[in-house]
Write a protein that binds this DNA or RNA. Structure first.
Lengths: 131, 131
DNA sequence: TAGATGTATTGACAGTCATCAATATAGTCT
DNA sequence: AGACTATATTGATGACTGTCAATACATCTA
């Protein structure tokens, strides 16, 4: 229940759905795609992986692993590990051409998390405006 | 350098800034706010904290810690720990009123990370459209 | 002042993660 | 076939993290 501090020091209970206001705390359903979104955010929450995503975002086309590796002062297996995390989160696609492997951003999946965060922001702005 | 697979099996080097195309891989500067953004993403990349943010996002006003705690099957110190992580990332503000502490979303900081992700998405779409 | 209550902090512990060295795999070239 | 190259995988290790129990702190009330 949402509580409000009163003059006398008591917390008064605000009933559910007051005057068309936003959802009450106790009502908020657990986001069914929570784990999925946490996986996406976790994949992005690393300096190396975020930089890789930025590289892929700014590139014309897919990028060769060899070109990604040279951007970092990290061993090749470490870069390969980070690429695997991005793959497992479905944030990137890979394609093998000869000896080289090329990675590219999965824009649709990437948009999912971006729009979710924007959605939370909108909800907050809406809630703030109703005050 | 960006490499392209040719018929003969060689990787040819594409010069920087080809025909007004997007930035070359080797040119991409290191994002100066990288660590800051990683901290924000790390703060969000946890199921408990993401749910807390969703609660704060959907609420009319700030929310009492006591109301947050009841939403989870976790001890009070654990919730307090997660709130501290969100505070350290500057994602939330807190205010003490009597015995209770109320948390609210820092919309401006939240917007920073949302717009950054959207920006990466736009860049990717732009790059994709130029192909 | 003493007791009660809500929340933050501390310290410990188990689980996860980033990194590296070594190795495996797959493709190319001679 | 054999040498070479690019990348993935495995296993080990130190660092980080989520959780809890115990405690501290601040505020209210009797």
């Amino acid at each position: 229940m949402t509580a409000t501090r009163q003059n006398n020091g008591e917390r008064t209970i605000i009933p559910l759905q007051v005057a068309g206001c936003c959802d009450n705390v106790a009502m908020s359903p657990k986001n069914p795609r929570l784990n999925e979104q946490v996986k996406l955010l976790s994949a992005l929450a690393d300096p190396t992986r975020l930089r890789i995503v930025e590289l892929l975002s700014g590139a014309c086309d897919s990028i060769c692993v060899c070109d990604i590796t040279t951007q970092f002062e990290l061993g090749q297996p470490t870069i390969s590990h980070h690429l695997k995390v991005l793959r497992d989160a479905n944030l990137v696609s890979w394609e093998k051409r000869g000896l080289w492997v090329y990675y590219s951003l999965n824009r649709d999946v990437f948009e999912e998390i971006a729009s979710h965060l924007s959605g939370l922001l909108s909800a907050a702005q809406l809630a703030g405006a109703q005050r």
